[in-house]
Design a protein around this nucleic acid. Sequence first.
DNA 1: GCAGTATTTATACACTTGCATAACAACGCA
DNA 2: TGCGTTGTTATGCAAGTGTATAAATACTGC
Lengths: 218, 218
Amino acid sequence: MSAGERRKFRREGEERRRQDLIDATLDCIADHGLQGATVRAIALRAGVTAGLIRHYFPGKEDLLQAAYANVMGRMTELAKTALATVDEEPRLRLAAFVEASLVPPVVDARSFSLWASFIGRASSDAALGAAHRAGYLGFRDEVEALVAEVLAGAGRPAGIAELRRQAIAINAVIDGLWLEGCLASEMFSTGELAEIGIGSVEAMLGVKLRDETEVERA
Amino acid sequence: MSAGERRKFRREGEERRRQDLIDATLDCIADHGLQGATVRAIALRAGVTAGLIRHYFPGKEDLLQAAYANVMGRMTELAKTALATVDEEPRLRLAAFVEASLVPPVVDARSFSLWASFIGRASSDAALGAAHRAGYLGFRDEVEALVAEVLAGAGRPAGIAELRRQAIAINAVIDGLWLEGCLASEMFSTGELAEIGIGSVEAMLGVKLRDETEVERA
DNA sequence: GCAGTATTTATACACTTGCATAACAACGCA
DNA sequence: TGCGTTGTTATGCAAGTGTATAAATACTGC
């Protein structure tokens, strides 16, 4: 076998390559955690050689940060889309928001694996921590605004403190159900989590979010 | 400086050493994630040299598993103690359970860091995943039993499906609030999370858990 | 005190890691 | 077509990884 065979390759656009590398990084992390995200493993998955990574990113650290930003971006984007699609009553928009957060692809083992890997490091890494907090607060503010509209629409507007409290609680239910769904998806039937989520929010707010005809009582 | 100085050491009991190594491992993980848990870093923290680890554990993997079991053990132990201390009305016991889950030391950055580090790997590691699921189900069953008692005590016993649903939802609020508290403890005043948690559970169940005099309305 | 044991240290080894550098070749443009 | 640019590969290196092994020393029983 002639050893001097040099690998064939194609030149891809810069944006494309960067995204490919980021995707490969996320694949590695989802499969084997941050430990599995070595430059060589990433390069292998991206179909390039390790050295190329440093041509697009100053160092592995920067690639990881870019990957994290990518994940956060997709998640918030998903949530925003869910909010934007329904432009009707606040009640329905809140319900849609809750539901969107509790069905695939948001509830998904891979997403969770990525989230856990990064979040575990956000505790010790200041930059990651700040990025996460920003995303979280944005999320909660969204919920709070929605809750304000819903309560106002129901004829019982709430004060600042009450709003904050409700937003925190609702956010918590969503997060908790999301967690359970990601960790043990096969324990829940399709739509069950969303159903429970919406029901819980209704109970907490004391407001029906859906039409009465849609509500089932067990 | 004479180079032939050999380090002084003391012989500790086997159990003590194993626990020291496990504690050191958890410290490393809490501080810098699984990546920071190298045999040398662990040994340094435990005040021994790296080789000793392999005298007590067949390999690093086994040490990590032992460490994980240790964490899980402490957590469930904490929860059980919280339940055992209050032996009064179901309502009060549920309230105590919720509160115990939402104040230190359960709500704690270190605990969370450990949880996140291990859980991230539980997705890909079958053994870790099974261990986690067992712990989670035990937790949820506990909640479900408590809810059953509370509802029965309130004069409106619930069916299997309703109980399951409530347990899932309540568990979710607790988890979600726990998450928020661990990730951004400084955003919440003392006891605020517990307050919100208990209030949410009350709303979801439609049952007051505490005496009316303790309830504050915002 | 003294010998025996096994805990603990020290050292070494093979391997992986991220990173640096030079050679190469694919593509754009004349 | 041919040439320069630079995206890409290939190779190498120093530091760090888990593990294996031998030497040393603290403790136990006499």
